[in-house]
């Protein structure tokens, strides 16, 4: 399916979804509440057949006070890929886990928690992955500071 048709198809099936502007790949934006149900139907709907959660990360939009969660999906059968984005507020970054849908989310969500501090509700094993368990703060946040950081011009 080509990208325009893909986005159209997703929006047609899920009225809550809208086009996510500014991405070079087909991308939709949904609210965090319906994220799991949208992703589940994208996985199970034979029209889309996204059998892989390819990548998951988050972007810290500090000025706008939100984290944008990015889910990249890929379908090995149909060879198309899509991106689903969802926002969570920066002051209470709790998102639903999708680890029940794809097992790769188990690791990817831990990474996002570790580096950006997004908390995944329902994740069975939410731990830091790279940093020590007693590390303070989440380094990929734009306002992260620690004593050893170099001053950037």
């Amino acid at each position: 399916m080509d990208s325009a048709a893909l986005v159209e198809g997703i929006i047609r099936k899920h009225p809550g979804a809208q086009l996510r502007e500014g991405s070079d790949t087909p991308a939709v934006k949904v609210s965090a509440e319906v994220l799991v149900s949208v992703l589940e139907s994208l996985r199970d709907d034979p029209e889309f057949g996204f059998d892989m959660l390819f990548d998951h990360t988050a972007i810290d939009w500090m000025e706008q006070g939100r984290f944008e969660l990015i889910y990249r999906l890929f379908s090995t059968e149909q060879g198309h890929s899509a991106m689903v984005a969802a926002d969570v507020p920066r002051d209470n970054p709790v998102a639903p886990t999708v680890s029940g849908l794809w097992r790769s989310a188990l690791g990817l969500e831990r990474e996002v928690y570790d580096l950006l501090g997004v908390l995944y509700d329902g994740h069975p094993d939410l731990r830091r992955v790279f940093l020590e368990d007693d590390w303070k703060g989440h380094p990929l946040r734009k306002d992260y500071q620690d004593d050893y950081m170099l001053e950037r011009p």
Binding site: F54, D55, T57, I59, D60, I70, R72, R103, S104, L106, G107, L108, E111, L140
Partner: peptide
């Protein structure tokens, strides 16, 4: 495996404001 790179640019700076590597090994590890 497949190495992916997500770049987020604000159109002003010389570099990205966010870069994320989709690492094949990270997924294969689990």
């Amino acid at each position: 495996g497949i190495l992916g790179l997500t770049l987020v640019s604000d159109g002003k700076g010389a570099g990205p404001i966010r870069a994320h590597f989709r690492s094949p090994n990270y997924n294969n590890l689990w």
